[in-house]
Amino acid sequence: MKRQLWLAANSLVVFLLLLVVWQVAVKALHVPAYMLPGPRAVARAVVERFGSLEQSFLLTAEEAVVGLLASIAVGVAVSLMFAQFSLLRRVLYPYTILLQTVPIVAIAPLILMWAGPGLISVAMVAFLICLPPMIANTTQGLVSVEENLVHLFLMHKATPMQVLLQLRLPHALPNLFVGIRISAGIAVIGAITGELFAGSSRVGEGGLGYSILYASGQLETDYLFALVAAAAVLGFVFFFAGMFLEWYFLHNWHEGSRLETQE
């Protein structure tokens, strides 16, 4: 625990130093604010436009959450089907990998064309980017159960449903959470990418992605920086929420998810 605090303190010091260097450099080299504002200008933009920043932040968070939850639900359902019906898995699994290789920026405009701008289509972009890691990891966990454990269940006349839900699913939880952790990180990226295309019907009311586009068009570079910082914070929040959930559900029995400081 002490060690971790020490590391955190170090990171903070480095961060503050960077801010100082940045501020001094901007001042000394007379960089125009529309090219690169100093950290003080960015901080001012955060304070002055906190309301709209917060609104964009929450909207993007909402889109990302919806996309992520949908990817968890659909991903787990698809993986359960894959685990139960190996023919289905062999036929369809390659397509889920294919989905991963399709650049999301290439399909985002299509989705918008079909679903129209708004939360649904942005969440859909986040959903699509999150789905492959959910399926890949969960399926891996479901099918990698030791043969003897399956035999054990069969000796007690377990039904296929019992094997699936009481053996394969809990066995796959660590993998499922790896999927969630990966997806949580990219859900925010997905939502912001979606917004770049979807935007908003009303000026100033879009999410972070839309606002970034808008701010760059207006040369509001200080606000742009504030938006980027907010996006980074949102990504962090998602990632740590995923980690926390993983720890909460698995720390009792799973080695990999126990904190170093325990025991």
């Binding site: 003897n148 054990l152 069969l154 000796m155 809990p170 066995h171 029995w253």
Partner: peptide, 18 residues
Amino acid sequence: ARELVSFIFQDATLLPWR
């Protein structure tokens, strides 16, 4: 005859989440 039989495997094959 399975209900008459118990099988004990080499590794304890316990469910780690239970």
